[in-house]
């Protein structure tokens, strides 16, 4: 690094900027994930009941449903309570609700799922079992909505992976060029090392270390840039949550490994050119 400070600095900056973009996507992905988890917690299965069902029977069925492994809680909403909630949640229609002679709203069982069961498959399974009760007229659980949530998560995750892979490739090429230049600058010394009998491992070591540190420093620059961007967006645009510390640790470790991988590739190719054997 000391021999070609400009090139090394350029490599670190380029890697930093490349990884910064991944970092930004990481922050975005994390916040989308958080938002999705919040939305997921509101996923519930609602069984609308036929009119005139015996409440005692419904209570027994509710207790049975609560025993399902996917279910966290079951709440019975009577016809009266349903009307009360509707007029409270839709105050603009309060006159309509108060003038009604017959309550048109059905009673229902609102089923909250366990955290681990807020998946399309589990929601569908619970809905199917509820539909099996004779007093249940209709079951709704926002199937499309749940599916869409998962699709968004997959697309965001895939996008981050794809972008990460492209930038990782760019970073490998950059570090490779920097290491190649470093080898060229030390060509004479390497030739002497080979002449006097230095081992390949000894000759490679400083270049691998250089790749590792370039990657690590680039990763550090990316973390700082991402942190700066996160703070700015947080203060001016919208509240965001910083990524978990282990994401940062994995990012830095990944950057260091990436640097070493790139250096290994470059060193293997360049050192062979110096030795005719």
């Amino acid at each position: 690094m000391r021999r070609a400070p400009l090139l090394s600095g350029l490599s670190i900056a380029s890697i930093g900027v490349s990884l910064f973009i991944i970092g930004l996507f990481g922050v975005a992905a994390h916040n989308v994930d958080q938002a999705l988890s919040g939305a997921e917690s509101r996923v519930e299965v609602v069984a609308y009941l036929r009119d005139g069902v015996d409440e005692e029977l419904v209570g027994l069925a509710g207790a049975e449903v609560e025993g399902y492994p996917e279910v966290e809680s079951v709440t019975y909403i009577s016809k009266v309570e349903a009307l009360f909630r509707a007029s409270r949640e839709l105050p603009e229609f309060s006159d309509v609700f108060s003038d009604l002679e017959v309550n048109p709203l059905p009673a229902s069982l609102v089923v909250q799922l366990q955290n681990r069961s807020r998946t399309p498959a589990d929601a569908e399974r619970v809905a199917a079992r509820l539909a099996g009760y004779g007093f249940v007229e209709e079951v709704r659980y926002g199937r499309e909505w749940v599916d869409r949530l998962y699709r968004i998560r997959r697309v965001v995750g895939g996008g981050v992976l794809l972008l990460g892979a492209s930038f990782a490739l760019g970073a490998i090429l950059l570090i490779g060029i920097a290491v190649r230049m470093a080898i060229l600058a030390r060509r004479e010394g390497i030739a002497i090392m080979k002449t006097v009998g230095a081992t390949e491992a000894y000759i490679r070591r400083p270049f691998l270390a250089e790749g590792l540190f370039t990657g690590l420093l680039g990763g550090g620059v990316a973390v700082l840039l991402t942190w700066g961007a996160y703070r700015t967006i947080n203060a001016t645009l919208l509240p965001l949550e910083w990524v978990p510390v282990w994401w940062v640790a994995i990012g830095l470790l990944g950057a260091a490994l990436l640097g070493m991988l790139a250096a290994t590739r470059a060193v293997r190719r360049e050192l062979k050119k110096i030795d005719v054997f």
Binding site: I192, K194, T195, V196, G197, T199, F277
Partner: peptide, 22 residues
Amino acid sequence: KRKDLPELRRRAGFVFQDFRLL
């Protein structure tokens, strides 16, 4: 083999016409 070269070269010193000092 490639891995044997360092040992061989330690056993056979080489001097060049143009010295090749750093």
